[in-house]
């Protein structure tokens, strides 16, 4: 089943809209909320994994952007600045999805965007601020 991981940013006026309800009922999408900050009258955000048929995903995405919600692919959310990374490996035990891994032969750290759920656990661990959250 096709899947999409997206970051949804809601302007304050849309926070009260039952968006996930519409994605499920109207488009037959499976909505897996990975992270969320929803505060009344403030800009809010959800990180979701949407899965369903190809046309349903397309319809759901169209609905979201027509509603006025800013949709962004999840991979852009956490940025790994390779030039700042010293490959110390401090972040490795913190990453719950193995998006950050070490080649144990070379001891080099690498980051796979697709596996990142933007949980931000690595952000406060990196002493060199090589991992950055980008809204």
């Amino acid at each position: 089943m096709p899947k999409k991981r997206v970051v949804l940013t809601f302007p304050p006026s849309l926070v009260s809209q039952p968006v996930t309800y519409h994605l499920v009922k109207d488009y037959d999408l499976m909505v897996n909320i990975l992270r969320g900050v929803v505060t009344p009258n403030e800009e809010s955000g959800l990180v979701v994994e949407l899965s369903g048929a190809k046309h349903a995903l397309e319809g759901g995405m169209k609905y979201l952007s027509e509603t006025g919600i800013h949709v962004q692919p999840l991979g852009q959310d956490i940025k790994w600045h390779e030039d700042k990374c010293t490959h110390c490996t401090a972040c490795i035990p913190a990453c719950p999805t193995q998006a950050l891994t070490v080649d144990r032969e070379s001891m080099e750290v690498s980051f796979e965007k697709d596996k990142c759920i933007a949980c931000e656990l690595c952000i406060q661990i990196c002493p060199y601020r090589a991992l950055e959250i980008q809204f």
Binding site: T86, H87, C88, T89, A90, C91, I92, P93, A94, V102, R104, S106, M107, E108, I125, P127
Partner: peptide
């Protein structure tokens, strides 16, 4: 430690470094 986990109190505990082996090389 460099393998990524050590056994403590009978279970696997993940390890993280603060000193960079890559840079030391």
């Amino acid at each position: 430690l460099k393998s990524g986990s050590i056994t403590l109190e009978g279970r696997q505990v993940p390890t993280g470094g603060l000193s960079s082996y890559v840079c030391a090389q």
